[in-house]
Design a protein around this nucleic acid. Structure first.
Length: 203
DNA sequence: CTGCCGATCGCCT
DNA sequence: GGCGATCGGCAGC
């Protein structure tokens, strides 16, 4: 792996960032016993003030304000009162944009993820399902509201994003975003075509 | 202060 | 394919 992505990577148009985040690695709690490395295989772009499906559509409210701040920070929120969803803030300071992390493939730290997903379940979770879906991804990586605002470009952050040393040429599938009721026609969902960790519905 | 509703998930039919 | 769980943000009164 080459190293953590810097702020310049995120200070670009959100759609570009979303696309290029595919095959990048999420590195959580690096250097600890809880270290997890996972490859991003599915993301969605949310375009701020010009996107009615974005939480930033109504401007810098207390919750969405983080998306108007500097790029390279986490925006985490609670969905349906149960699950957490994590986004990476994009664009320059003052412009809202974010990429929702929808699914990743576990490369390292499978046991840690498995513990967080719940050991008392009736059935054993298949490996590709461990971080499949935005809620499951947050749960498996231990990301919650306390991580909201985290600077992933900081050396001390428990969450980092790394670019792979060799960018493999994967086919990128593109389609409508999941679970929204506004701007459903925009193809702002991106995924590694055919990867088993991509959530439903399949692209 | 109240009421609505959601960038979801897993179990049930 | 349907639905219940569960709670914070936000708009409106």
């Amino acid at each position: 792996m080459a190293g953590p992505l810097g702020r310049d990577f995120f200070a670009r148009p959100t759609v570009q960032v979303a696309r290029s985040l595919l095959t990048c690695r999420l590195v959580v709690d690096r250097g600890t016993v809880d270290e997890v490395v996972a490859t991003l295989v599915e993301v969605e772009a949310y375009l701020g003030l010009r996107d009615p499906a974005s939480h930033a559509y109504r401007g810098p409210t207390p919750r969405a304000g983080i998306m108007f701040g500097p790029p390279g920070h986490l925006y985490v929120y609670l969905s349906y009162g149960i699950h957490h969803c994590a986004n990476l803030v994009c664009e320059d300071h003052g412009t809202a944009g974010a990429v929702l992390l929808r699914a990743a493939a576990v490369e390292r730290g499978e046991e840690v993820v498995r513990e967080r997903r719940g050991s008392g379940l009736a059935r054993v979770i298949p490996v590709p399902d461990l971080l499949r879906g935005p809620g499951n991804l947050c749960r498996g990586l231990g990301i919650a509201l306390g991580d909201n605002g985290l600077d992933v470009c900081s050396a001390t952050s428990r969450v980092e994003v790394w670019e792979p040393a060799v960018r493999s040429r994967v086919a990128v599938a593109r389609g409508p975003r999941v679970g929204i009721s506004a701007a459903t026609e925009r193809p702002l969902r991106f995924a590694v075509r055919g990867h088993p960790a991509v959530s439903r519905p399949a692209l």
